[in-house]
């Protein structure tokens, strides 16, 4: 027989999974709106952000309720801790999707410029990291979480590559400075997406293995 407490935990996990699914869609649409310079897609992303924020508040409240009423320990405590942090990461990912969407309007006049960069490749990589990080939480899979951690270097390299390329473009032609600056900002946003995915992966490893690995800490919880 499922305990009342387990139903509360299941509800929390379900909300996190639904929120994860929503922010994945937000990233997809945000990136697509940039690559296609599609303002209506961008508007959808901005409008839907309030749903992400609603999940954020609901999950916070659910965690607080469980902490207050059940004083969880051990695995349950780690789930609550991880849920609070993953919720925060997902909310920030949702904000980044909005930040990407907000770049569409300034880029409308120079739509092809972004397509000729590695932004698409970088976005695909970061999007994959977010998906894997969420999947690792859904499936309690620390091995997949570890793969996410290992992918972050690739995104950082692409970010540096784009930075060098955009600086070169700016030096080449002052007319490209504005577009190149937007691409730099987009690249930085995508790099942050990967960082948030990494944080989620670290939380999953804490949840399953009770090991704190962030900031290279190697002591157990």
């Amino acid at each position: 027989m499922a305990r009342h407490f387990e139903l509360e935990l299941d509800h929390l996990r379900t909300m996190l999974i639904r929120m994860g699914s929503l922010v994945e869609e937000q990233i997809d649409l945000g990136v697509k709106s940039i690559l296609e310079c599609n303002a209506s897609l961008a508007q959808i992303v901005m409008d839907r952000d309030k749903k992400v924020d609603e999940f954020d508040n609901e999950i916070d409240k659910q965690c607080m309720r469980i902490f207050a009423l059940t004083q969880p320990v051990a695995m349950d405590l780690r789930l609550l801790m991880a849920a609070l942090k993953i919720n925060n990461e997902l909310e920030r990912i949702g904000d980044i999707a909005v930040n990407l969407a907000e770049r569409v309007k300034p880029l409308l006049e120079n739509a092809d410029f972004v397509k000729n960069t590695s932004i698409s490749l970088m976005a695909m990589g970061a999007r994959g990291m977010v998906k894997d990080a969420i999947d690792s939480f859904v499936n309690n899979d620390p091995r997949l979480a570890k793969q996410v951690l290992e992918s972050d270097d690739h995104i950082d390299n692409l970010d540096r590559e784009i930075f060098d390329m955009m600086v070169g473009k700016m030096k080449e032609s002052p007319k490209l400075i504005e577009s190149a600056a937007h691409v730099l900002i987009i690249s930085r946003h995508i790099e942050r997406l990967a960082d948030h995915a990494t944080n989620i992966a670290e939380d999953v490893i804490f949840l399953v293995n009770a090991k704190i690995i962030k900031h290279h800490a190697d002591d157990s919880a």
Binding site: V73, A74, M75, R78, A210, S220, A221
Partner: peptide, 19 residues
Amino acid sequence: KAIFTNPTKKQTEDYITGR
């Protein structure tokens, strides 16, 4: 602090979490 955050035995985990 170890027992209540990361017990090593399943029986301990089940007991302290009420399962």
